[in-house]
Nucleic acid binder design. Structure first.
Lengths: 244, 244
DNA sequence: ATAATAGTGTCTTTAAGACATTATGCG
DNA sequence: CGCATAATGTCTTAAAGACACTATTAT
């Protein structure tokens, strides 16, 4: 009965066990034309061929050393973006979400600036497309439980807008405070006070002037950058927005 | 080339693909003797036999309909507690965390009141034991990457103490405000002002008097209960604690 | 000069921290 | 009574909202 660990491992065969299918799905957000967009692909293969889906795919034990590698690989295949903000949102597993069997997917969300990317359709010739999130229902039915995955990712994003600096990652490296505020207003879907918004970010000591200005047909605005790229600051208080 | 989805599914065999091992690990917290404890088991089987580990096990496609089922099943096997607070923290997957191959684990944390539970050693005769978290290093080496999993779960817990009502789930159904405050002080490891603490919870309208009193050798205290069992309230401001 | 947007001054409001004071039970 | 803990009163402080005011550019 008493075998060594090396004996045990020598006779261990993963294929003797029933095990879930493992995939990673990406909810890639960007802001385009004053609205939040998510990147969707039209499935070109079974199952759920022809339906819209979040880009994703199987965890590939040969290609990927870690789970995050899978996520970055999928993201790069679809967008060409190498190192965006990436966050794991949750894992969804059950026996009904995929007709092939008990399956499990790890959902990630990514924030990228839309001008950074070139949509590519080369991988398995799936067409990727930005979809404004308020149009998402028009694209139903979505494949599998991807509407649920999207909803969880979007809720996470909306929550973090309230108490972190996270959305900075949706802008280009240099941005004005007005651009940042507009972005927050789109995400929160409400108007914010300019002075309060500026105070919040300036007092937090997380951005710095670049010395450059954004030209415009009115008064030029100072350009800022995040002091630490990809960092997210947690504010002690949530944004509340207008009082009644 | 053009097959139907049902044809496709008929010939699909999960065992043709290389796929990760899938497990669930539980970080079960409780408060005992004025300190936070976590439930650990001593592994009785290979691999990592004899090391301490978080209770957990394989996702079992026959037994479990959903991932949460796996978590609840493992929790019940170890503690006999049927419906505690449970939250998914994150999924950790790579090719080095388990000697059997590419493996992935979904980490959950649970909050339970220690008086609710009876530790059972019946399943695979592993002995479960409460370990105060400040002693965790003395129990090293822990199996696999379980110290990392624990750390992520503990960080999540500590963060949520700052801005949610979550720790209520560590107390019994009826509790005094002093007991609640003591609990927060243990979790945050700092003293809190009594008036501010009471205001915070009372103004949030999330607890109500039960009408009963906690007897003691001094002035009896009012007993409260959470208005909604298992609910977590998000405060707009984080607890900061004493100003230096 | 005017329009438009950038940026500031400053008063109010909210919820938290500090800390003294009062209340209530038991021995 | 006197001790210990429960519960409250009230002043201060930090950060947000409201909103008027000033600054800078193009046309």
């Amino acid at each position: 009965m008493s075998t060594s660990e090396s004996d045990y491992l020598q006779h261990y065969n993963i294929h003797n066990y029933d095990t879930p299918l493992c995939t990673v799905d990406m909810c890639i957000f960007s802001v385009l034309n004053d609205s939040v967009n998510v990147l969707l692909v039209k499935r070109s293969e079974h199952p759920e061929r022809g339906k819209w889906a979040l880009p994703g795919g199987f965890v590939h034990p040969e290609k990927d050393q870690t789970l995050d590698d899978t996520a970055y690989r999928k993201l790069f295949e679809k967008t060409g973006v190498a190192s965006p903000y990436l966050e794991q949102v949750g894992t969804f597993g059950n026996n009904s979400r995929d007709p092939r069997g008990w399956s499990l997917t790890i959902a990630y969300f990514a924030l990228i600036n839309s001008s950074d990317i070139t949509l590519s359709a080369n991988e398995s010739s799936e067409r990727a497309q930005w979809v404004p999130i308020h149009e998402l229902n028009d694209y139903c039915p979505m494949a599998f439980d991807h509407l649920t995955l999207f909803t969880h990712c979007y809720e996470r994003l909306k929550n973090k807008v309230q108490y972190t600096s996270l959305p900075i990652n949706l802008l280009q490296e240099e941005f004005t405070l007005s651009e940042l505020q507009q972005l927050f207003e789109i995400l929160l879907n409400k108007h914010l006070d300019r002075k309060a918004f500026r105070r919040r970010f300036l007092d937090a000591d997380i951005i710095e002037e670049t010395g450059n200005m954004r030209a415009s047909h009115t008064r030029p605005a100072k350009l800022y950058r995040a002091k630490q790229l990809g960092a997210e600051h947690y504010f002690l208080r949530s944004i509340e927005g207008p009082r009644s």
